[in-house]
């Protein structure tokens, strides 16, 4: 029987996709892992996801302002 689920398709690059998979370990929000650049997730977690990814990417950048 065909099933239809409401959610959000997230398109992203592969590195971000890995981060998303990592975040999914903590709190499950992925409904279906589609392929390398697409993932189908719960609609309510998008904002949190954006924030988390931003945090992680921020940790990985060199900050000029602090190095004064």
């Amino acid at each position: 029987m065909v099933k239809a689920v409401k959610g959000v398709v997230v398109e992203c690059d592969t590195s971000v996709k890995q981060i998303i998979l990592g975040l999914n370990e903590k709190g499950k929000f992925i409904i279906e892992d589609l392929d390398d650049t697409h993932v189908f997730v719960d609609a309510s977690c998008i904002e949190q996801l954006r924030f988390d990814i931003d945090e992680i990417l921020n940790e990985n950048t060199y900050n000029v302002e602090e190095s004064k």
Partner: peptide, 26 residues
Amino acid sequence: IEKNRLRPVQSWLYSDFGRQQDFEST
């Protein structure tokens, strides 16, 4: 561009098609 690394689109996921022909025609 980096700020927009996520491109979320509201959608519906259709899964569990019983037969290949159903899937193809849909």
